[in-house]
Write a protein that binds this DNA or RNA. Sequence first.
DNA 1: GTTTAGCACTCTCGGCCCGAGAGTGCTAAT
DNA 2: ATTAGCACTCTCGGGCCGAGAGTGCTAAAC
Lengths: 347, 347
Amino acid sequence: MAGMLMPRKGVVLKAIIEQFIRTGTPVASLDVTRLYHLGVSPATVRNEVAWLKKEGFLLQPHTSAGSVPSDKGYRYYVNSLLDVEEISAEEQRRLRHMFHQVEMELEEWMGLAACLLAQLVNNVALVVPPRTARARLRRLHLVSVHSKVALLVLVLQDGRLRRQLLTFEDEITQDQLDTICNRLNAIYGGLTRARLKTEPAELSPQEARVLQVAAVLMATEDEREYEEPRLEGLRRLLGQPEFVHSDKALDIMDVLETRALVRGMMAQVRGGDVSVVIGEENPNEALRDLSLVVSRYGVPGEFTGAIGVVGPRRMPYSRSISSVRFLAALLGELAAELYSGSYRGTQ
Amino acid sequence: MAGMLMPRKGVVLKAIIEQFIRTGTPVASLDVTRLYHLGVSPATVRNEVAWLKKEGFLLQPHTSAGSVPSDKGYRYYVNSLLDVEEISAEEQRRLRHMFHQVEMELEEWMGLAACLLAQLVNNVALVVPPRTARARLRRLHLVSVHSKVALLVLVLQDGRLRRQLLTFEDEITQDQLDTICNRLNAIYGGLTRARLKTEPAELSPQEARVLQVAAVLMATEDEREYEEPRLEGLRRLLGQPEFVHSDKALDIMDVLETRALVRGMMAQVRGGDVSVVIGEENPNEALRDLSLVVSRYGVPGEFTGAIGVVGPRRMPYSRSISSVRFLAALLGELAAELYSGSYRGTQ
DNA sequence: GTTTAGCACTCTCGGCCCGAGAGTGCTAAT
DNA sequence: ATTAGCACTCTCGGGCCGAGAGTGCTAAAC
């Protein structure tokens, strides 16, 4: 991946990539000369292009077509050429405002974030709900459904709700249920699943039963790999010119339906900032035609989700990076509020 | 839509439609003769086919191709020719069993139903959550998040959960929150939104605030047209040969993302049994290329959702109808358990 | 009158060819 | 190192054609 390109080679590469990202058709050296008048003749540009091809930054679909960026080209572009234009303060305010207008609920925020992101980058946006490494019980409630059946509602520390129907051997009233709740909450509130078992207590059969079901629910939470992610903008992705001949479109649907995308995406989120994965760099076979721009959000070590963009290699990287970065930060703030109660919002 | 077709005309039409549903290519009269040896010569079949074409039951893509069913043909087929083969008892047991293996939760059931249906019919399956016409509050809970913030959890009569963060002016403890809960539950449990306002009571400012937020949440429930539906098998639909040229595929994505499909589908569910809507019969412009097989499920008048299949006109109607019918009944049973507590399950 | 056989006719589909156009690569001059 | 000029290559789209499929019709048979 060598060092820096000679300044002009970089300019040419950048011009070609950005032109290609816009139009999607191979770009001719002449076009570059015309559109970004560099003060040199087309022939000079051709020489540079020839060199970039030789070195593998550009590809030629066929002998006499313009050039197309290779993965190596994109990579160099993203690492060294790209100037990420952060979202303007005004735009940030506008977006923030939208989040304050919807219900104060994580689900809503994620849905909105996915919608906005998809719109901003005109590709598929994916938001994976944040979760704690280990589910922690905040509180449980029992609601009588009828004489022998009750609805168990678990409120987890991070605000998630789980419910499960529960059948008792004998009839049981709401008052009795309330008593059970109060006792269990007093003893087990704030504990992880593992601690539910070790915490000693004398429990009635019913209490034991409720506790056991709660433990099972929390266990499935702990084991669940990822929550169902929000996914938006499929239509935009499939509308990209690279997918009009739909062989690839079907592959994409496969990737999405099998959740392979989520797993692939989660595998790529490095700590801290936004990661960019380009085409063949992707370890997941099925994602080789796609590029990913992803970021974690949340409080590292405590609870994390992921948000990202999926699109063809030919993707507006600058816009994607800035959008993902901004929304990740925003979601992080919002989620922190729900999770730990310590609101770290700006202003 | 005339009366019954002469017996043999019916047989021929049925044969052609079923063959076309299998293969997707226009079917030649000769093929019919070969595959379903009817004891008549190809020429006779050709005459019948000619008649069916003249009457508009069949179409010819071009002068010298086989025939393709028209909407009128499909309609006659569905109404008069189709013998719906109900799902075998053994299969029913197998499917039922799967529902008893997952968590006892409506969400899970709907997801499973969508998956199974998509698989059974190899098309898109859609499950719209059941809902009551008017949300009814079963119980509410308050969970302290931190000193001034609490999580309000609403348990609706039909088992749905809603939550909302709530900020108080002053610090408030869990004990105080519990007191508020108990009072509000005693007064307002089981009421609809409208009744929340009329029920007179002396409330503290905090209680009033909680009640007000609860009322708003319930109002948004009442107004919400349809819940986010479960949708499965998009890949299968897009994989159908009629969509390999992806112009239509994009249209479909549009329909799905704009929720037009759900609205279109809900518009078509008649009472009682499974409804079939074929192509142009669909009032919704965007669904003109698709056929729907849908059914309500739930307890009419109390709470209803919908389940259905979306596919190209060329769809396995028999299988679709029996699958939808069965799963609608099954979901109805399961949901009834959650909703009213009156379990009407078999066995 | 209905059914059957035979045959000509029509229309699509895939392959092929070909010319236009685009864009490069090379060479030689500046 | 840069530029001008030119020949070369390769794709793309259109038009052409032959094969094959399937019908529609007519005339004979039951």
